[in-house]
Design a protein around this nucleic acid. Structure first.
Length: 846
RNA sequence: GCCGGGAUGGCGGAACUGGCAGACGCAGCGGACUCAAAAUCCGCCGGUACUUGGUACCUUGGGGGUUCGACUCCCCCUCCCGGCACCA
């Protein structure tokens, strides 16, 4: 054995070559496809960890690597802790970039997409991510999208899918319609410099608004979602409580009827209403303007103005103006006649498109009334008025007040009046309490080729006819000419377009729009649980076992779009009896972006770092470990090329240390004796550090996920091992063996290649993924002596070393006896001594 | 305007419940090894002042406060990032 130690010393400067062993393990892992498979049933507890599936754009970027490194570390940790882990991966593979590539490279979208998938899958494998590929989901395959179509039919049956003509967002670059969620600052979410146009089109919608209330309420069931995601969804749903009140039109009524229903959150101020304001697009406006050329012209001008403002995204900035229609409406509470105006700041798509204008108690109404000389009438007196209020000067908008000049409601508090007056309206049939939402139905039609065909037919005789379930899937044809003009490419494929009506057997044509790709990603994670089912999207019993997802990890950019649609889809499936869970995701983690030199990586800035070059230079482990080490995972990560070199150095230090002492460990392991005899102090220090490190890493996995500090802790352990390495041979063998094994286990979730290599080097035959996570012993982690800082009047003046379990009296005596302390308090009076057990002592002197 | 999040050395970041500010890493400086370089190993590394060791003072975006003690709590302000917004 001494000779062997000698031999090891000679390998001290052995080069650390991650590529040789990463290649070796990569090949071994490819040979065993069952390695990361989840067990269909198990006595172990289940754990479903999921990273957001990528769009197959061509190659992974560092943001992907970071996302998957977090998920992979967690999956490996859970495996080592004895869980039945489901850790799948798939491809969100429908979408526009494939069509754009088809146009620019003359490559069919399918071919382009599948090539990208192959490339990215190879990258993932090379990075060592532990996915259960037997459950791979590719959304552009008929075996997947047929279930999109199936769900669509089920929603149609339940009245949740419907077709209507409406004003929709249109991106001229995508040549298709966008959902409200896909419009960012008035521009397309894909083309941030392209303003969205408004077009009138016949479209398919899903009734997300049926679930507005539940989508909002159930946010309370998600305590383990990031606060900001919950807030963003809450804002997006935009619940507002108020009342509907009917104002009767005075004089002749047109086709739009004789009632103007207004929505208000402040019905308590209705006695102060001095006009009614309509949105230019309000149906009644056409009636009122009929035969009035001047009014018609002004109204169409306002419509144009609103549309333009909406496109540019600065609705809210435009100057308020309006026009008096010359007609009147009756306030149902007091019978008063108020003029009806049309105003450019009233939006048809919020509330009812009509408001009552109360200039005394609303700032916008006040501004408007001032401009046009409309009367301002106070009906609300604030309680805590420091100076006399003058509603002619400024609106009083507080709800902390008392209702005045309001007939039978005079004297009520605002809050009470809001309730009582709405009830009153309901009793007398001219209104009711109500709730409105900002959330709109989800427009899912896209005038594009590379997506799921919407399974609907149009028959001249029978109208809209759903494709019978037995005829699914409606296959997306190949060889379609793709252009970005002239509407849906599928409309130019006669073989696809023309079919027969299943009801009457007569000629029918197919719907040529495809589904928004967010449909694909709204339920893909259910498919993973039962990915090869060809009779149903999945078996409910299997969903019952795996759901909800224990941990979902992805970018915060999906906080609204994908995550609200997924929640909606789950609730619909639950109401269909397919799943039992109300929510798909138990815990959500949103990781920060990877940036470089303070900016998002982009080709135009030339600051792109690719995983391939990082693997080539430093290896997969280093790329993964650095993406976890450089910043806490929830924050943005500023990529520094020199930073990853430090990680590579660290991995080399680990490798060399274990390599140098592996044989000693193997020998020790072969005649393990159980509890070591009392250790020499240096060995005890190492043991203590080891157990402290195990605690820190384990705790972080349970709670904060600050993997940057976990890795720092492991670095500290390795630094300590190096500091005593010269003496390590004289230390007890079993301890060295324990340290080496545990060090490798601690690194296994973060740097799997290195960990596997060293595990084998230590003579461990067992699969590392199934090796038990090390346990720490609090007694062994505990310090025997601690250093106590001594403060005088809150300033650090000295430090003393005392046994860890010293009581206060002892610490106090030692502190007061300290030379530096004595000098500092000489001639002064000790007023108080404040102990912080185990932490610090502060002496207050005068 | 409203709602979140953030600002700490030359840089990325640490300090978890009010208790040693700057862990760990990068960059930098010095040393060992080497003919030399790379690699590796060891040491130093917030600022200012003074006689080196050392000691004192300053320092967590700015200003005030609470406290024996504040990166951490409270009030005011500045800047940055994200969401919502004529929402009635």
């Amino acid at each position: 054995m001494p000779q062997e130690t000698q031999a090891n010393k000679t390998t001290r400067d052995e080069r650390f070559d991650p590529h040789s062993f990463e290649t070796k393990w990569y090949e071994r892992w490819q040979q065993d496809p069952s390695l990361y498979r989840a067990e269909p049933t198990s006595t172990k507890p289940k754990y479903y960890v999921l990273e957001m599936l990528p769009y197959p754009s061509g190659a992974l970027h560092m943001g992907h690597v970071r996302n998957y490194a977090i998920g992979d570390a967690l999956a490996r940790y859970m495996w080592m802790n004895g869980y039945n882990v489901l850790h799948p991966m798939g491809w969100d593979s429908f979408g526009l970039p494939a069509e754009n590539a088809a146009i620019s490279n003359n490559t069919p979208p399918r071919e382009w997409t599948l090539r990208n998938i192959a490339n990215m899958k190879a990258q993932m494998k090379r990075l060592g991510f532990a996915y259960d590929w037997s459950r791979e989901v590719t959304t552009c395959f008929p075996e997947y999208y047929r279930w999109n179509q199936w769900f669509f039919l089920k929603m149609y049956e339940r009245g949740l899918a419907y077709r209507k003509k409406s004003r929709v967002n249109w991106c001229p670059k995508c040549a298709t319609v966008l959902a409200n969620e896909q419009v960012v600052d008035g521009c397309c979410w894909r083309h941030e410099d392209t303003p969205v146009e408004q077009r009138e089109l016949e479209q398919w919608f899903l009734r997300t608004t049926n679930y507005s209330e539940e989508l909002l309420r159930d946010l309370d069931k998600l305590p383990n979602w990031p606060e900001r995601v919950v807030t963003m969804q809450r804002n997006w749903i935009g619940r507002s409580e108020g009342a509907l009140v009917d104002f009767k039109l005075e004089g002749p009524a047109g086709p739009a009827g004789s009632t103007i229903t207004v929505f208000t959150t402040r019905v308590d101020t209705i006695y102060g209403a001095t006009s009614v304001q309509l949105a230019p697009e309000h149906p009644l406006v056409a009636d009122l303007a009929a035969g009035n050329a001047d009014l018609s012209a002004k109204v169409s001008q306002m419509m144009a103005e609103q549309r333009k403002a909406k496109e540019v995204g600065d609705i809210g900035e435009i100057e308020k103006h309006g026009v008096d229609t010359g007609r009147f409406a009756i306030n149902p509470y007091n019978g008063e006649k108020v003029p009806i105006w049309v105003a450019n700041y009233i939006l048809m798509d919020y509330g009812t498109g009509a408001i009552m204008s109360v200039p005394a108690h609303d700032e916008r109404d006040h501004e408007f009334a001032k401009k046009y000389g409309l009367p301002i009438q106070q009906v609300n007196q604030p309680r805590a008025a420091s100076e006399p209020v003058d509603v002619q000067k400024a609106a009083v908008t507080t709800t902390d007040g008392v209702v005045i000049n309001s007939g039978p409601f005079t004297g009520l508090s605002c809050e009470e009046a809001i309730t009582r007056m709405a009830e009153y309206a309901e009793t007398y049939g001219f209104g009711k309490p109500t709730v409105t939402y900002r959330l709109k139905d989800w427009g899912v039609s896209r005038q594009r080729y590379w997506g799921t065909p919407i399974p609907m037919l149009y028959c001249e005789k029978d109208g809209i006819v759903p494709v019978p379930e037995k005829d699914l899937p409606v296959i997306l044809p190949d060889n379609v000419e793709i252009t970005l003009s002239g509407g849906s490419p599928l409309a130019r494929v006669p073989e696809f377009l023309n079919t027969t009506c299943p009801k009457c057997g007569g000629p029918a044509r197919r719907e040529t729009d495809t589904m928004d790709t967010f449909v694909d990603s709204s339920w893909y994670f259910y498919r993973y649980a039962d990915a090869r089912n060809d009779r149903a999207p999945f078996e409910s019993k299997i969903i019952g076992y795996w759901f909800p997802i224990d941990q979902y990890i992805g970018g915060v950019e999906h906080a609204i779009l994908h995550l609200i649609y997924s929640r909606f889809w789950t609730k619909v499936m639950r109401d269909m009896g397919l799943v039992q869970n109300d929510e798909p995701v138990q815990r959500l983690f949103t990781q920060g972006m990877v940036i470089k030199d303070g900016a998002k990586m982009s080709k135009s800035l030339g600051n792109v770092v690719t995983p391939d070059e990082m693997i080539a230079r430093y290896g997969a482990d280093a790329a993964r470990l650095y993406s976890l080490f450089a910043a806490p995972p929830d924050r943005d990560l500023d990529w520094q090329d020199t930073g990853i070199e430090g990680i590579q150095r660290f991995l080399g230090r680990v490798y060399r240390f274990v390599a140098r002492h592996a044989s000693a460990t193997r020998v020790a392991a072969s005649h393990e004796t159980g509890q070591a005899p009392s250790l020499p102090p240096e060995a005890r220090a190492i043991q203590r550090k080891l157990h402290q490190t195990i605690k820190r890493v384990s705790d972080d996995f349970q709670g904060r996920w600050h993997f940057n500090t976990c890795i720092a802790a492991i670095m500290e352990l390795v630094n300590e091992l190096y500091a005593v390495e010269d003496k390590i041979d004289t230390m007890a063998g079993p301890l060295l063996a324990e340290v080496q094994r545990d060090l490798v286990l601690l690194l296994a979730p973060f740097a799997p290649y290195l960990a596997h290599e060293l595990w084998e080097m230590l003579g461990e035959g067992e699969n590392l993924l199934r090796a038990p996570w090390p346990k720490y012993d609090p007694a062994l982690a505990k310090e025997e002596e601690i250093e106590i800082p001594v403060q005088i009047n809150g300033k650090l003046r000295s430090r003393i070393v005392v046994p860890a379990d010293s009581d206060h009296t002892f610490v106090r005596e030692r502190a007061l006896a300290d030379e530096k302390v004595k000098a500092a308090i000489a001639g002064k009076q000790v007023v108080r001594v404040i102990p912080v057990p185990g932490k610090l002592i502060n002496i207050v002197v005068k």
